[in-house]
Computed example of a mutant assay.
Amino acid sequence: MDLGLRGKRALVTGSTAGIGLAAARMLAAEGAEVVINGRTEERVRAAVASITEQVPGAQVRGIAADMGTAEGAAQIVREEPEIDVLVNNVGIFAPAAFEAIPDADWMRFFEVNVMSGVRLSRAYLPGMRARDWGRIVFISSESAVQIPSEMIHYGMTKTAQVAVARGIAETTSGTGITANSVLPGPTDSEGVGTFVADLAKERGISFEEMEREFFASARPSSLLQRFATPDEVAAMIVYTCSQQASATNGAALRVDGGVIRAIL
């Protein structure tokens, strides 16, 4: 299926690994001009090289910028003033007891996970309006619906992303612009994979055993009963960015492996 993305300019933040890299690669495979983003030149160059190698003829370039700061967002806008497809993927997480989370961490999580997308969406929306076409996607999480007790500050930011996406969508009524959020469940991304591998090492068990234990105790409602792959999540993201997804607007789209026990 041709997703109608050929020639569209796409920016995926936090795209040097995991879900972001998978989404960027799939967008490039659909013929979009893709901008990779990460915090360091080394990782950005590696991601660009990876996509170029895997996708013949890929049009991909990169910008190293810290999306946890207003200056980082401004740098990206200066270098890429016009974007048709914006995937607000960058995010951080860290388990911590609620009583042990200082103000600085609450603010840092909000800056990276929420304000990065707010700033870029605000900057690129006028151009999308002028062209009467655009896609804005916030990569949220099932944690937006089921706030994890071990990461309340993270869950709060994921809920905020869903609210911002829906709010933006309300302003695009009657246009060719959509704004949605995608809610992955537990995914074998770089950060999660490392976290689980470290836990397994501490326990003296294999990754597979740790994975089974995680779903038995922490996410027993999962229908998938394993970590999703970045590609499985990216497929939903790229469809949401497509021309064919024009009737999907203001939606919170779950790719959670059935973790959320709800029929709607």
Rank of each mutant, 00 (worst) to 15 (best):
A100E: 15
R45E: 05
A262Y: 02
E99S: 15
L224M: 12
R78P: 00
S143C: 13
R226S: 12
A144T: 10
E213N: 07
D231N: 10
N249C: 13
I139D: 02
A97D: 15
I177C: 01
E208A: 15
A218R: 15
R119N: 08
A197C: 10
R6Y: 07
R25N: 07
R108I: 00
V87C: 06
Q59C: 06
D198Y: 09
E190P: 06
E211R: 12
A235C: 10
I19G: 07
G174Q: 05
A247F: 11
A17L: 06
V77Q: 05
K201F: 06
Y154E: 06
E232T: 08
R131C: 03
R261F: 12
N113G: 04
A97E: 15
P186I: 10
R108Y: 03
N249L: 04
G250C: 03
P102V: 12
A29Q: 13
A24S: 08
A169I: 04
M67K: 00
D231V: 05
T13S: 09
A165E: 03
E42V: 13
G14A: 10
R6D: 08
L183Q: 08
T159I: 09
Y239M: 07
T240K: 00
E99R: 15
T175F: 07
F215L: 13
A251Y: 00
V192K: 07
G185K: 02
M128W: 03
A104R: 15
V34F: 07
A197L: 12
N249Q: 06
V35P: 01
L253A: 01
D66A: 05
L264H: 13
A218S: 14
W106F: 14
R9F: 02
R61N: 11
V35T: 15
G155R: 06
I36P: 00
V255L: 07
T52H: 09
S217H: 11
Q225E: 14
E190W: 09
A73N: 08
G7P: 09
L224K: 13
I36E: 01
I139G: 01
G57N: 11
R43D: 11
D198K: 15
A228Q: 13
R122N: 10
V48R: 02
T178I: 05
G31K: 05
T69H: 05
F138H: 09
L21H: 05
I177A: 01
G38Q: 00
S246E: 12
M236V: 13
